[in-house]
C-alpha cells in the first residue's frame, strides 16, 4: 500500500465503524498523566522500590537467576502467556511460580503488597515498550474465551465490557472518563483504593459496577479476559505502574 493509503486507514476504520483503541494515558486528566510520569509524585513508586529490594532478597534471589532487574525489559509486554504446561499465566502468576518452584517459598498471595511490589518493579522495566502478547497457538482458545466474556452483556445492569470501553470511550461515567479498558497500566496505584492494586481487582470493580458476579483474583475467566484486553492493546505502550483516580 502507498503511504497515502496507510494514512487513510484510520479514516477507513472509522467509516467501517471499528472502534479506535487509544493508549490509556490519553484518557487520563493532565494532572494524573503528569504525576504518572513523575516518580516524586507517584505513590506507586514506594512499591517499585520495595519490589527492587525484594528482587535481590532470598536464597536464591530473583537476581541470582535473572541478574539485574533491568534484564526484565520487555517481559511484562508478553504477559499473559501460556506456560509450557498449558496454564495461562499473568505476570503475577509467573512470579508466584518462581517463588514456589525456584525459591521454595510459600506464595505471596494475590493482592499482597510483596507481589504487587515485585510485579510493579518488573513491569516498570517494560514501560513504553509495545504490548506484544501471543494470540496464536495455545493462546488462541483462551483468547476466544476472553473475547466472549468481553462481548457478553452481563450483570443485573446487562452491559458488556465493550458497550462502555468501545462504544462510550471518552465519555463521562459520573466522574470518570471511560478509557478503552486495556489494562496496560497495571498494577496501578488508585487514589480511591489508597494503595496499589492489580488488574483483576479493577476487573472486580467493573463486574460489581454492572452488578455481575465478581470472580476471584486470578480466576480463569479474568485471566482469559486479561489476554483479550492485552490483544486489543498489542502495539500500544506498557504504562505500568499506572496512577488512577
Amino acid at each position: 500500500m502507498t503511504r497515502g493509503g496507510w494514512a487513510l486507514l484510520p479514516l477507513l476504520a472509522l467509516l467501517l465503524g471499528a472502534a479506535e483503541i487509544r493508549p490509556t494515558s490519553e484518557y487520563l486528566s493532565p494532572e494524573i498523566r503528569a504525576a504518572q510520569e513523575d516518580p516524586s509524585r507517584h505513590p506507586g513508586w514506594l512499591w517499585v522500590e520495595e519490589g527492587e529490594a525484594l528482587w535481590r532478597r532470598g536464597e536464591p534471589s530473583c537476581a541470582t537467576c535473572h541478574g539485574n532487574i533491568a534484564g526484565m525489559a520487555g517481559v511484562a509486554a508478553r504477559y499473559p502467556m501460556v506456560a509450557a504446561d498449558g496454564t495461562l499465566l499473568d505476570l503475577e502468576g509467573r512470579i508466584e511460580r518462581c517463588r514456589t518452584q525456584h525459591q521454595g517459598e510459600p506464595a505471596f498471595g494475590r493482592e499482597s503488597d510483596a507481589l504487587l511490589a515485585l510485579t510493579a518493579a518488573v513491569a516498570l522495566q517494560s514501560r513504553g515498550m509495545p504490548v506484544a502478547v501471543a494470540t496464536d497457538g495455545p493462546a488462541a482458545s483462551f483468547l476466544e474465551e476472553g473475547r466472549r466474556f468481553y462481548e457478553t452483556r452481563q450483570g443485573q445492569l446487562n452491559l458488556s465490557c465493550g458497550q462502555c470501553h468501545d462504544d462510550n470511550a471518552g465519555r463521562r461515567l459520573r466522574g470518570d472518563v471511560i478509557s478503552n479498558g486495556l489494562g496496560t497500566g497495571y498494577p496501578a496505584y488508585r487514589l480511591e483504593w489508597n494503595t496499589m492494586g492489580s488488574l483483576h481487582r479493577r476487573l472486580r470493580a467493573c463486574s460489581l459496577g454492572v452488578r455481575a458476579e465478581q470472580l476471584p483474583l486470578g480466576s480463569r475467566e479474568y485471566l482469559a479476559l486479561e489476554l483479550f484486553l492485552a490483544s486489543r492493546a498489542n502495539g500500544l505502550p506498557v504504562e505500568a505502574p499506572g496512577l488512577r483516580r
Binding site: R153, G155, Q156, N168, A212
Partner: peptide, 24 residues
C-alpha cells in the same frame, strides 16, 4: 440499547447472587 433494564429479571447473565431475581 445500552441503558439497563430497570424492571426485568429474565434473560440476564452472571447476575451477582445478591441481586438475582430482583428487578433494580
Amino acid at each position: 440499547a445500552i441503558m439497563p433494564a430497570y424492571h426485568r429479571t429474565e434473560g440476564l447473565v452472571r447476575v451477582d447472587p445478591r441481586y438475582r431475581d430482583h428487578p433494580v
